[in-house]
Computed example of a mutant assay.
Amino acid sequence: MGITELKLPEMIQYREHQIASKSLTRKLGIELPFMVYAMDAGESISNEQSTLTRLLQVIDGILTIQVGTVRYQVPAGEMMMVPANTLHELRADQRCQFMQFETK
């Protein structure tokens, strides 16, 4: 497979009152999950966990990640790592786009 250019902000569009997601795993020919998301303000993904470590890179806006009672505000250009088997919630207090890569 050759070099592939990804323009992440253009790959996923915001949808009013929804969460949009797109898997890039097959397109890139990789084994581990790689997704991009666009979350409208007020949307959330709650009580989520994975057997893999998650790397969340914010592309646009601010993503709130809550682990237990601790909230992390992750702005565009920053990344957060969520350890494997950690119950967490993802929330968009304002519109945000982010990519999620899972690794061992």
Score class of each variant (00 low, 15 high):
Thr103Asp: 03
Gln18Met: 14
Arg54Gly: 13
Asp60Arg: 12
Ile62Met: 03
Gly29Ile: 02
Ala92Thr: 03
Asp40Ser: 11
Ala84Val: 02
Gln66Gly: 01
Ser23Lys: 01
Thr86Pro: 00
Gly42Tyr: 04
Thr4Cys: 01
Leu6Pro: 05
Arg15Phe: 00
Ala41Leu: 03
Met35Tyr: 15
Phe34Leu: 11
Leu63Ser: 01
Pro9Asp: 12
Asp60His: 03
Ser21Glu: 00
Gln73Glu: 11
Leu52Gln: 15
Thr25Gly: 00
Thr53Asp: 10
Ser44Leu: 02
Thr103Met: 12
Thr53Glu: 14
Thr4Glu: 04
Lys104Asp: 04
Leu87Thr: 08
Lys7Gln: 15
Gln94His: 08
Asn47Met: 05
Met99Cys: 12
Ala38Trp: 06
Ser46Cys: 09
Ser44Tyr: 03
Val82Ala: 03
Gln94Leu: 06
Arg95Leu: 09
Thr86Gly: 00
Gln73Ala: 14
Gln94Asn: 04
Lys104Ala: 10
Val74Arg: 04
Arg54Ser: 15
Ser21Gln: 09
Arg71Tyr: 08
His17Ile: 02
Arg71Asp: 14
Lys27Glu: 07
Glu43Lys: 15
Leu8Trp: 08
Met99Ile: 12
Arg71Ser: 14
Ser21Tyr: 03
Met79Gly: 08
Val74Phe: 05
Ile65Gln: 00
Ser44Glu: 10
Gln18Gly: 07
Asp93Pro: 00
Glu48Tyr: 08
Glu5His: 14
Leu28Val: 05
Leu52Thr: 10
Glu31Cys: 00
Gln18Asn: 09
Met99His: 06
Asn47Ala: 08
Gln57Gly: 07
Thr51Asp: 08
Asp40Leu: 11
Lys27Cys: 00
Asp93Ala: 06
Ser44Arg: 07
Glu43His: 09
Leu28Cys: 02
Gly29Tyr: 06
Asp93Val: 05
Val36Trp: 04
Leu8Lys: 13
Leu87Asp: 07
Val82Phe: 14
Phe98Glu: 09
Gly77Trp: 07
Gln13Ser: 15
Leu28Gln: 02
Gln66Met: 09
Leu90Glu: 15
Thr69Pro: 00
Gln66Glu: 11
Ile59Gln: 14
Ser23Asp: 06
Ile65Ser: 02
Leu55Arg: 14
